[in-house]
Design a protein around this nucleic acid. Structure first.
Lengths: 108, 108
DNA sequence: AATTTGCGTAACCAATCGGTTACTTATATA
DNA sequence: TATATAAGTAACCGATTGGTTACGCAAATT
């Protein structure tokens, strides 16, 4: 199934899972142990994360190890980067000015 | 109302609205004209965007001009940046190696 | 061989989402 | 003053979300 990565990272639990897996790959129960919600709930979150490519699974006997795969996060980073000039560095003042200018222009 | 910016940008229509407003501030009907969905639907999207600070409104007579405010996008950029080393530059190979190494280590 | 463990999945649930139409109010315009 | 326009909002709808409990099955352990 195809999944939107933006929608996948919208859930705070899933973002937490990604953060955990970035530090260390874990099997599903190990992940679930870190949360108060049930194992099946975590299983569903992991499924969503694999469906959009943010997590990969390697079966090891009866255990399934979850690894974070950050490639798809580039999509998010690229999107935000398009607007980065509006909040960073010396361009801040210029950006603010242009915005104001634009507004005045059109609200005339 | 407090809103999560990650959840706000999860919807593709809202991301499109942000993209439009980045180019030019618009009143609500002008935004709605660019989409096939109804004006009230757009009104709801704009409301969500204002609730998380991604859009600000300036009333101008009976019109409400919507301006993109990208400050909150920094939150998203910062989050993705934490994992950026996993997909960019020459560190790719090293990152991949460390990941593999880590996996082997724990799956032993 | 019997039991424990890891995990998927089905069935269900309440809440939220993204959309609609219908109505209302306030501001501009003819 | 009558009419047109901009936009919020309520009521409603079906689909999706995020959670649960209960069950089943395969792999590991005793």
């Amino acid at each position: 199934m195809r999944r939107d990565v933006f929608q996948a990272i919208a859930d705070p639990t899933r973002r937490e899972i990604i953060g955990m897996l970035a530090h260390k790959s874990l099997n599903l129960n190990n992940v679930a142990d870190q949360f108060t919600i049930s194992r099946p709930a975590i299983s569903k979150h992991i499924k969503i994360l694999t469906e959009c490519g943010l997590v990969t699974i390697t079966q090891q006997g009866r255990e399934r190890y979850c690894h974070a795969d950050f490639g798809k996060l580039k999509q998010v980073a690229d999107w935000t980067a398009r607007y980065q000039k509006f909040w960073t560095s010396k361009l801040d003042a210029l950006g603010a000015f242009l915005e104001t200018d634009k507004k005045q222009d059109q609200q005339k």
